[in-house]
Amino acid sequence: MFKKFSSEDVSSQNQVKASVQRKIRQSIADEYPGLEPVLDDLLPKKSPLIVVKCQNHLNLVMVNNVPLFFNVRDGPYMPTLRLLHQYPDIMKKLQVDRGAIKFVLSGANIMCPGLTSPGGALDDDALAETPVAIMAEGKKHALAIGFTKMSAKDIRAINKGIGVDNMHYLNDGLWKMERLE
């Protein structure tokens, strides 16, 4: 999604009104309960919350010029990788084997066998259609944010095809957009 993303894909930047700000905050808190205690630091009530609308129904949530979350249409908010790196335990984790790393980093979706092979790992509580952190064999930090196409149990059982859509990965356009002025 962010493979060729840049500031040129931004169509508008708006400070949202208080009610919208509250709604965004609430849905982030619901999706990531682990983040709630630090939400006041991340999205300070007195700093304006900017919603950046981009091509393809993509929105970024930004504070002080730093993109923190993104979503598509009305879909769930997902943290940027830089934010996830700071709070790694807010999402369920799926792990790809080492061989899959280079494919994930070139933007490919995550195939089931990369998750079920000996180097992979699955959190059985991960359901279908939810944001997950994509980890990698032998690495400490996440390399991508994914959106599951099937549950972890189905990934294991079906074991073929795309298990997780690759939403955002290291060195993609969003990663490179550390700040948006």
Binding site: P37, V38, Y87, I90, I101, K140, L170, N171
Partner: peptide, 28 residues
């Protein structure tokens, strides 16, 4: 309310911008 999670500081490579452990998969 839960404890405030301690934020993790990741070592990023200033050359390729990736976490240092991913340099081997980086552009150069």
């Amino acid at each position: 309310m839960a404890e405030k999670p301690q934020s993790v500081r990741v070592l990023y490579c200033p050359v390729c911008s990736l976490p240092a452990e991913y340099c081997e998969f980086g552009p150069d």
